[in-house]
Computed example of a mutant assay.
Amino acid sequence: MTKLLHIDSSARPGRAGEHPHGSQTRRMTHAFVTGWLAARPDDVVTYRDLGTMPPRPVHHEWIPSAFTPEAQRSPAQHAALRESDALVHELQAADVVVIGMPMYNFGMPSALKAWVDGIVRVALTFNFDPKLADPYIPLLAEKPRRAVVLTSRGSRGYDAGGAHAAMNHADTALRDVLAFVGITDVQVIAIEGEEVGGEVLADSAEQALRRIDMLLEDWLPVAAMPA
């Protein structure tokens, strides 16, 4: 049985194509997860809607709590980390991570950044050894994990080699964070041209949904193989 972690981070509550002003990234994550479950209905999906229920950003109680060994934490410190612990446990349990990430002002939504800050936890998702040449040790590389980032952008040219690629601080940051904790098999599929609209957006959305279908065809046979 494969475990999926489905994350939406768009501030728009509905899905494009179904709701007025709906989210393209919610449309894409829904297509991926629905397609997966159609082939593997017994797999388990954990859903986290960051867009409508954003995690609390890192705060002054969180910092000393996270850097205090678990056995030495006070009840207040355990309480300060309760939400972050839940986010970490969801990620640790997942085999496939599906992240919907609209680009807001060239970066990820603040709710997704709060999730990132909640899951990058010393002794849980990474360790630090200053004696090593590379002191950072990813802890989520202990088993194969994959992630697909389904993103939307207002204009065009944000992919590698594009006219605005240098301004794309969303894909690169999320890829780096996932690799930092040990998830290096990451695919990115984007819809571009939301602000342009018309045929530009329609063509981009069609291509993205087709790429999702192709990725499912590629990943599902692997998921079906016995461990």
Score class of each variant (00 low, 15 high):
Pro130Phe: 14
Leu87Ala: 10
Arg48Cys: 06
Leu150Gly: 00
Met103Arg: 09
Gly118Asp: 03
Phe67Pro: 01
Lys131Arg: 14
Arg153Leu: 06
Val177Ala: 14
Ala165His: 11
Gly14Gln: 13
Glu83Ser: 04
Thr151Leu: 08
Ile99Ala: 01
Ser110Lys: 00
Ala123Thr: 14
Val181Glu: 03
Asp159Ile: 11
Glu206Cys: 05
Ala179Cys: 12
Thr2Leu: 06
Glu90Gln: 12
Pro57Arg: 05
Ala38Met: 12
Ser23Val: 11
Val96Ile: 03
Gln77Lys: 03
Ser65Ala: 13
Thr151Met: 04
Thr151Ala: 12
Arg48Phe: 10
Pro226Asp: 03
Ala76Val: 00
Ile183Leu: 08
Ser9His: 08
Ser9Gln: 03
Gly162Phe: 12
Asn168Leu: 10
Pro226Ala: 13
Leu37Ala: 02
Lys143Ile: 11
Pro75Glu: 05
Val186Arg: 06
Glu199Leu: 04
Ser110Gly: 15
Ala16Gly: 09
Arg146Asn: 00
Ala93His: 03
Arg146Trp: 00
Ala123Gly: 08
Ser74Thr: 12
Leu178Ala: 08
Ile191Arg: 10
Leu174Met: 14
Ala208Glu: 13
Gln187Ala: 14
Val149Gly: 09
Ser204Trp: 14
Asp43Ser: 13
Pro144Val: 03
Gly154Ile: 11
Leu150Phe: 01
Ser9Pro: 14
Thr52Ser: 15
Met225Pro: 00
Glu206Ser: 02
Val186Gln: 10
Gly17Phe: 14
Ala160Gln: 14
Trp115Leu: 03
Leu124Trp: 05
Met214Tyr: 00
Ala11Ser: 08
Ala66Tyr: 05
Leu112His: 09
Ser9Glu: 05
Pro64Thr: 04
Ala190Val: 02
Arg146Ile: 00
His21Ile: 07
Val181Ser: 07
Ala227Val: 07
Met53Phe: 15
Ala224Met: 01
Arg27Met: 10
Gln92Ala: 01
Leu216Lys: 02
Val96Asp: 00
Glu18Thr: 15
Asp95Val: 02
Ala93Asn: 01
Ser204Ala: 07
Ala31Phe: 14
Asn127Met: 03
Met103Gly: 09
Asp171Phe: 04
Ala79Phe: 01
Thr125Val: 04
Asn168Arg: 02
Asp42Phe: 07
Val149Ala: 01
Arg26Phe: 15
Ala16Val: 07
His59Gln: 09
Leu178Thr: 10
Leu209Ser: 08
Met167Lys: 04
Ile137Asp: 15
Arg40Ser: 06
Ala223Lys: 00
Arg153Gln: 07
Ala71Ser: 13
Phe32Val: 02
Gln24Thr: 08
Asp171Leu: 11
Val45Thr: 09
Ile191Asp: 06
Gly100Gln: 05
Arg121Met: 11
Thr184Gln: 01
